[in-house]
Design a protein around this nucleic acid. Sequence first.
DNA 1: TTGGAAACTGCCCGGGTGGGCAGGCGTCAA
DNA 2: TTGACGCCTGCCCACCCGGGCAGTTTCCAA
Lengths: 124, 124
Amino acid sequence: MSEETSPPLVIAIDVSDPALADRLASLLAGVAGVRLAAPGETASIALVSRDQPAGERSEIELTPRERDVLALMAEGASNKAIARQLGISVHTAKFHVSSLLDKLDATGRTDAVAHAARRGVIHL
Amino acid sequence: MSEETSPPLVIAIDVSDPALADRLASLLAGVAGVRLAAPGETASIALVSRDQPAGERSEIELTPRERDVLALMAEGASNKAIARQLGISVHTAKFHVSSLLDKLDATGRTDAVAHAARRGVIHL
DNA sequence: TTGGAAACTGCCCGGGTGGGCAGGCGTCAA
DNA sequence: TTGACGCCTGCCCACCCGGGCAGTTTCCAA
């Protein structure tokens, strides 16, 4: 073979804005070692849009501790598990969870991680 | 290039595999019109990993009813709420939830929607 | 110094959750 | 016909969850 150091990266463009998608496509077209995925092809890497609709930059303000708790919640951790892994009491874990539900405008922990994921606060 | 027709695209690399992330970074470094986001900077576009762990292309098989229940779970609905909206008993709702926990290999409903989202079974 | 925010802990309690048990029905393929 | 499967229902029970109450400490800014 012609000694490929590594197989070309297959990249999918998953951007709703057509103009931006087009621009990305032409930019990547000239890059060696990269190939754009055919429609329907399973790519290993994707280019995705990351900004909120521009009016909704609702950077929900979470404290460091709340982020810790939120991350564990997204792993399905119970209050007891959160407490153990963070070295705090169950009561404190519940305290943080309660704040999270409040800030994320959620009715329960499942709703909370779903909201957080939707708003880009966490990445699943 | 007499003039910049548009500002450079700020791209974030959000890939867990360090080697792959590195490769992407060096590939993109030489592309005109593209700039890599600084750590913490809010990028408009992100490169994300898209493939399952390669052995686990597990198109998890859910029954139609299970998809209904899963969608409601992702909205934070309780078993009672699921039952009411689907016109079934709470027991049946619990039955479907239980099947979902099993199929999604989750420890609880929060874990279930997180897993489903990660595996692309649902979109948040 | 005073105040506020973050983080932490405790107790109580109604309701939700998850697991186990034991069934029912209709459909569809072997 | 017999089985498998999806879908449905019921009861029991230990445990978890979320909300309310009240309190502590530390740290930082006004």
